[in-house]
Nucleic acid binder design. Structure first.
Lengths: 343, 343
DNA sequence: CTGTTAGCGCTTTCAA
DNA sequence: TTGAAAGCGCTAACAG
């Protein structure tokens, strides 16, 4: 079943059928109706390969989803997908492993799909500058920020991780906590960890509290199990800690579990804060104190930025829009996992 | 940069370049080397659209992921993707909404990508028989079973939901629970709900316990919030209940939260069971009693079944392999969310 | 408004 | 073993 068959059956030429199917206005209503009736009769769909081959440009936006297990990213994807229904683009998800190279994946998809734009959900493309430079369509990184500013095609939308972490740490301090330990990601591996750590340190320093990285910072993956292990290790090294500042809700939940196993109650004996505002924090007992990123805003703004750049790229009239690195507001969720220390 | 440019640069014809790039054996070593050197020089990649257009058949396996939020499915996807590295197939993820029609999505991808096989992760393709019949490549449904047996191309791998639910319910009964209420999915909407309910009823009947669907079954979506609401409603109608049997870990966690808000402790005052064995159940407090599906086995077996059918489809020699509907064993996770009732 | 037609980049016969 | 050439299904430019 090809456009030719449709043309034959409805008595028009392939050009007309093509025009109808592509929403070209230069078609008479009768022709449109006639063609559509045949198209519907057979549930005919244009061959995408042929379209792509011909037009040398797809209407595909590729989404590189790094680390399928992160619920946040899936939600972002869902929001973006929802908006696609009213947009003339096709979304193509590329799900890669937490340890895969997102820029390599993007380059692969560049060749295979020729997308008009790329959305990175998670990951840190800036870590692969040479590869990233090969990407010739606008892209936007959501949830992480692009620190390098010499990529004219890469924008980013993120929440202010420094401020978020600072806010959360300040809440602990305001509640009388002084001996606070940190469960965080590897500072070498991702700038997001660095920022959250900086925010934490800012709050500590503002309060004149000391912090010993060697003793009181434990590296953890963004999952439950590692959070639990980190909590255990920190407790051994810092038996007098009163609070754990973590860089993710999953770490926080893992830590809570570990504390419970050690007979310590949250928040009565140890306070714990999460990060990200994962929905589970609302249902966990105790409800977790956390920083909520506004997923909807993040996804929408990211998509808007990309669409602007794709759109004007098509017109190719004026100067290309410069990339933007935006920070969106976060919100603090008080929860129940931080106790007020009487002093 | 096309195959033509490559051909020109290395002095061979496009046919030869194509043969080299496709691993066709009828190429002289010199030609191969020459071509490859130029290909590597430019990092040339064949235009996929043109290949597809020409060969009318991709090496793509499409994966329809229904409901991005289900962690289980993402894990399954991860496992499948991991195995792809050693396989000559490309995976194409199609993420659709919980309420989208997975068979329509599959048909779309059939036209656009011409995959050699389809994996349904979640969903219930059997619910759309007419559409499903249009799919002309082998497919396999993982986590749900195909009840209809007149689809010669659709296989399935699932755990035995009836047995799993029965096992879980029996555990409650063995611990002295008699007044058990159920938080479950809509029996109309998915056969998986019917099966889990049947398993539950089986256990109840075996123990000679009555169950009043109207009074003690509450329909809930597979998420936290609805689980909480359901728990509240059930408690109002059944103030004397001692246990909640739920059809998903998320519902169970939502229910636990609701119970805590009502001042009821789990499991001391009310016992709760989950379903699926989501990793969070191990870190929740209390650890949830649940049925764990063996994700790895499910994913691997599902892929194996599909590969067998794709493979022999290519040979096209003997009779096509019939579809199989397999049930894999589950495991019961005791957890800590069920109390022993003294009677 | 509609029909005709030249490719898009590739694979795959067919001949050499 | 290699080259030449015919399309795959579609779009878009052009002619009518």
């Amino acid at each position: 079943m090809t456009i030719k068959d449709i043309a034959k059956e409805c008595g028009y030429a392939v050009g007309t059928v093509s025009r109808v199917l592509n929403g070209n206005p230069n078609v008479s209503p009768e022709a449109r109706e006639k063609v559509m009736s045949v198209v519907n009769k057979y549930d005919f769909v244009l061959n995408n390969s042929a379209r792509l081959l011909k037009s040398q440009r797809s209407h595909t936006i590729a989404v590189i989803l790094k680390g399928t297990s992160t619920i946040l990213l899936n939600n972002l994807y869902g929001i973006i997908q929802g908006r696609m229904e009213n947009l003339p683009y096709l979304l193509r998800a590329v799900v890669i492993d937490e340890y895969d190279d997102e820029v390599a994946a993007a380059n692969r998809v560049m060749f295979e799909q020729r997308p008009v734009g790329i959305i990175f959900l998670g990951g840190n493309p800036g870590d692969h500058p040479e590869e990233l430079r090969k990407i010739t369509v606008p892209s936007v990184l959501i949830t992480n920020s692009m620190d390098k500013d010499d990529f004219p095609l890469v924008s980013s939308v993120t929440t202010d991780d420094v401020a978020g972490a600072e806010c959360c740490a300040r809440y602990l301090i305001e509640n009388g906590h002084k001996k606070i330990c940190v469960i965080g990601g590897d500072l070498e591996s991702s700038s997001i960890n660095v920022k959250r750590y900086r925010g934490f340190r800012n709050a500590m320093e503002a309060a004149g509290l000391p912090f010993d990285y060697e003793k009181s910072y434990h590296i953890s993956k963004y999952d439950y199990g590692d959070g639990a292990k980190a909590a255990k290790a920190l407790l051994q090294k810092n038996p007098d800690l009163t609070a754990l500042f973590t860089m993710s809700d999953l770490m926080a939940i893992g830590a809570c579990r570990q504390l419970a196993d050690m007979g310590l109650r949250v928040p009565d004996q140890v306070s714990v804060t999460g990060y990200d505002g994962n929905i589970v924090t609302e249902y966990y007992t105790p409800r977790l104190t956390t920083i909520r990123q506004d997923e909807t805003a993040l996804a929408n703004r990211g998509l808007d930025i990309l669409l602007e750049r794709i759109g004007q790229d098509a017109e190719a009239t004026q100067e290309p829009l410069p990339p933007v690195q935006e920070k969106l507001p976060f919100s603090f969720v008080k929860g129940e996992s931080v106790a007020r220390l009487l002093s």
